[in-house]
């Protein structure tokens, strides 16, 4: 085994491989874009929470009308850039697509998902961004339906955005060699 590893290393060196890479490479611009997106999204939700129940916090407010299309465009751009980091399919995709939807129990009532599952596809960086895309889409739908973002719903959205961005950045930065 050790002999095989040494032979592999010598072959890699002799063939001119100065660095070894698996899957996605680190991209500073993606890191910056994602960090900027997180600040913008969390600031927006915090502002909507603060103005909840007033015209300034409504889905029809100027701030909301400006935020959602821009956030959607920015996130699409981030996903496109992430897709260019590697042409592979993330090795966990097979397992990921076999993971069932969880159920939740609230006040003695068991609630099960009835929506179709998102098909997990793309490289690992793209896969880590699926949750963030879902969080943003659900937030927009919830804001539209309720015409406001309440304090608890807002906190949940902020936590979800932070968690999703931190997850992607932790994977991406692990590739910053």
């Amino acid at each position: 085994m050790l002999r095989a590893i040494v032979v592999l290393l010598v072959v890699l060196v002799v063939s001119g491989c100065s660095s070894f890479q698996l899957g996605e490479r680190y991209d500073k611009s993606l890191d910056d874009d994602l960090s900027a997106f997180q600040i913008e999204a969390v600031t927006f939700v915090a502002s909507m929470r603060l103005n909840s129940g007033t015209p300034a916090g409504a889905f029809t407010s100027d701030a909301a009308k400006a935020f959602y299309p821009k956030a959607s465009g920015t996130l699409s751009n981030i996903v496109v850039k992430a897709g260019l980091l590697s042409s592979r399919q993330c090795p966990i995709n097979g397992i990921a697509n076999s993971i069932g939807l969880p159920t939740i129990k609230i006040g003695g009532e068991t609630i099960a998902a009835d929506t179709p599952k998102t098909v997990v596809t793309g490289n690992c960086a793209v896969v880590t961004l699926l949750a963030l895309q879902n969080v943003l889409a659900d937030l927009e739908a919830s804001h539209r339906d309720h015409q406001k973002i309440g304090p608890i719903r807002g906190q949940l959205a902020i936590d979800d955005i932070n968690k999703a961005v931190a997850t992607t950045l932790s994977g991406l930065r692990a590739k910053d060699l």
């Binding site: 990921a96 993971i99 009835d114 599952k117 690992c124 739908a141 997850t167």
Partner: peptide
């Protein structure tokens, strides 16, 4: 919305797996 949110939980878990692999 709670029903839809279950998909977010699933995708967050999947994202954690993908990030762990990248690490």
């Amino acid at each position: 919305e709670v029903t839809k949110y279950l998909e977010t939980i699933r995708l967050q878990f999947i994202a954690t797996l993908a990030a762990a692999l990248m690490k």
